[in-house]
Computed example of a mutant assay.
Amino acid sequence: MLNTSRPDLSVAAWRKSSYSNKEGGDCVEIADHYPGLVPVRDSKRPHGPALLIPGAAWTAFIAGLKDGCPAGR
């Protein structure tokens, strides 16, 4: 059976990418310390919704970005 409970993100420590600009432009933030999940949110809407990405899918996503982005290497 699928577990539909959501983790409590009210205490999450969010961080931006090291590639984010200092002016706080269009960024996503992620939160660590959620086993098997990577919470992702829009930095411009910190109280808005967050996506919960399975850890394996996030790893594949980041690997794909690095493979297609010379700056990511």
Rank of each mutant, 00 (worst) to 15 (best):
M1K: 11
M1S: 10
L2M: 08
N3T: 09
N3R: 05
T4Y: 03
T4L: 12
S5P: 01
R6Q: 15
P7C: 13
P7M: 11
D8A: 15
D8M: 09
L9V: 09
S10Y: 02
V11P: 00
A12E: 08
W14S: 08
W14L: 06
R15D: 02
R15H: 14
K16Q: 14
K16H: 10
S17Q: 11
S17K: 04
S18Y: 01
Y19C: 00
S20G: 03
N21M: 00
K22E: 15
E23K: 12
E23V: 03
E23Y: 08
E23P: 00
G24L: 00
G25C: 07
G25N: 06
G25V: 02
G25R: 03
G25I: 01
D26N: 14
D26A: 14
C27H: 05
C27G: 10
C27N: 05
C27S: 03
V28F: 06
E29G: 12
E29C: 11
I30H: 03
I30W: 06
I30N: 09
I30V: 15
I30K: 08
I30L: 05
D32Y: 07
D32H: 11
D32E: 13
D32G: 13
D32N: 06
D32R: 13
H33K: 10
P35M: 08
G36P: 13
G36W: 08
G36A: 13
G36Y: 08
L37W: 13
L37Q: 14
L37R: 07
V38E: 03
V38R: 03
V38Y: 02
V38G: 14
V38N: 09
P39K: 05
V40F: 00
R41C: 10
D42E: 08
S43W: 02
S43K: 07
S43P: 05
S43E: 06
K44N: 09
P46A: 06
H47F: 11
H47G: 15
G48D: 14
G48F: 13
P49K: 02
A50F: 02
A50W: 03
A50G: 08
L52F: 02
L52P: 12
I53S: 14
I53V: 15
I53Q: 15
P54H: 00
G55S: 15
G55V: 00
A56R: 08
A56E: 15
A56T: 07
A57P: 07
A57L: 08
W58H: 06
W58F: 13
T59M: 00
A60R: 12
A60Y: 02
F61G: 09
F61N: 09
F61Q: 10
F61A: 07
F61V: 00
I62M: 03
I62R: 03
A63F: 02
G64N: 12
G64D: 12
G64C: 05
G64R: 05
G64S: 11
G64Y: 03
G64V: 07
L65T: 00
L65S: 07
L65E: 07
K66R: 14
K66A: 11
K66E: 05
G68M: 01
G68K: 09
G68I: 01
C69N: 13
P70R: 02
P70L: 01
P70D: 07
A71S: 12
A71K: 13
G72Q: 05
G72V: 02
R73M: 00
